[in-house]
Simulated scan of single mutants.
Amino acid sequence: MASLALTTPISEPPNSSTTSTNALTVSHQIGIAILVLAFILGFPGNIFVVWSVLCRVQQRSVTCLLVLNLAAADAFVLLSAPFFLRLLAGGRGWEFGDVMCKTVHYLCCVNMYVSIYLICLMSLDRWLAVTRPFLSQRLRNKRTIYLAMLGIWVMAFLLALPMPFYRRIRQIREYNNMTLCLPYHFNFKGHEVFQYLFETLMGFVVPFTFILACYTSVIRRLRSAMFHGRVKGSLLILLIIITFAVFWLPYHLINILQVIGVLQDSQTLSNLVKAARPNVTAFAFLSSSVNPILYVFAGSSYIRRAGLSFMAKLFEGTHSDHSVLSRRGTSTDNSNLAKLTIKSLQSRDRVRNKSCGEEESKKMEMSCKEELKSLTTVQ
């Protein structure tokens, strides 16, 4: 994940025009507003989700546990918001040293990977519940779920390793030697292309293709005669997927444009990317604060009845929906198996009857021939 701060320094260089200063000020105000909104809404909201799951939910489904991990990752990354607010509002550049420069951006990148691959696991779980109910029931145990979530966290920390490698503090002479935390690619285009292409492929294209494949199969299955009605768990996960795509797609499009600009050596495209990246990155930062709002809307029917426990009721509802879905799949598969068994028995009986009839006719034919032969002999 690229820097949430502007790629241009906070203070304008000498001889800058009034127009550019005003534009920079407006850009800073937008960035500060987005970060404040994300922190005020997102951090308490995600903490509330974590508390609801840990203290209120009695039967934790796979969806519930994945939402818990997603909320914990979002709450953790939102703790970096004060660093970027200080950078934007302070006007003194990056004041926290090289280690924090690398660490903060590394954790933001880890959150991006954790979020998208947890959504992948949600989609896989939903696909198994709908299309492979027997296999889903066998895999739905605590050991398998915890191992899968641990694997996602480990993979996210590994995939995010290029971020601290390509991030360091630099002093910009043109801006009175102000220190900034900026991308650094060792003046080699290959490193720049690798970072942004790798980030977009592994953080969006590959996982999102997997998600679309899973849900395409799920939708086809749900539209068949096998399942009817609305499934809350599926709708909740669909909302999470759509939200992630809306907030992160602009960021990854900018990554692709930057790669194209580097390969084509286009200064115009590079300037466009530099101007757009701070805004799309701040917009992506909002994705960590939106999911609790989705849960509130999804669980609005429980608010009057359950009060602060409404979110627990929502997640318990996803557990019951999955159980109903699995039972439907199991009963349907059992009925289909019974039908197939009956058909096979009927077919076997018809074959047996047919063979028995042929044998009887042969016996009757032989007896007639013998009787005719005996009559001929007597005559």
Rank of each mutant, 00 (worst) to 15 (best):
P250C: 04
N177R: 09
R230I: 14
G190Q: 15
N176F: 13
L286A: 05
S270P: 00
A282E: 09
L147V: 03
P162M: 07
P250H: 09
E174Y: 11
Q267W: 03
L158T: 07
L182D: 00
E199K: 04
R167L: 13
F198C: 08
L269R: 14
L150V: 06
L249R: 11
Y196D: 04
V205C: 02
I237R: 02
F186P: 03
V154G: 02
I211R: 09
V154M: 10
Y166P: 00
G261S: 02
P278A: 02
V259D: 00
I169M: 15
T216L: 04
R173E: 08
K189V: 05
P164W: 09
L235Y: 12
Y175N: 14
S234Y: 08
A213Y: 07
Q258Y: 11
F165T: 06
T243C: 01
F194M: 05
T281F: 01
M149H: 03
G203K: 02
V205G: 01
A245E: 07
S217W: 06
I240V: 05
T243R: 00
S217N: 06
Q264E: 07
I241S: 08
Q267I: 10
A225W: 03
G151N: 14
I241Y: 01
A276N: 03
P162T: 01
M226G: 00
K274D: 08
L197A: 08
A284H: 12
L269V: 15
F165H: 10
L201R: 00
H228S: 15
L253A: 15
I242T: 07
T281R: 02
G203A: 10
T281G: 01
R277H: 13
E199A: 11
Y251K: 05
V259H: 02
I145Q: 11
I254F: 08
L236P: 00
I242W: 03
L235Q: 12
P183L: 04
G233Y: 09
T268C: 09
N279E: 05
F208M: 12
H185I: 05
Y146M: 14
A276L: 06
S234P: 02
H252D: 13
I240H: 04
L147T: 01
T179R: 02
A282T: 05
V231R: 02
G233P: 11
Y251C: 11
Y175F: 15
R230W: 10
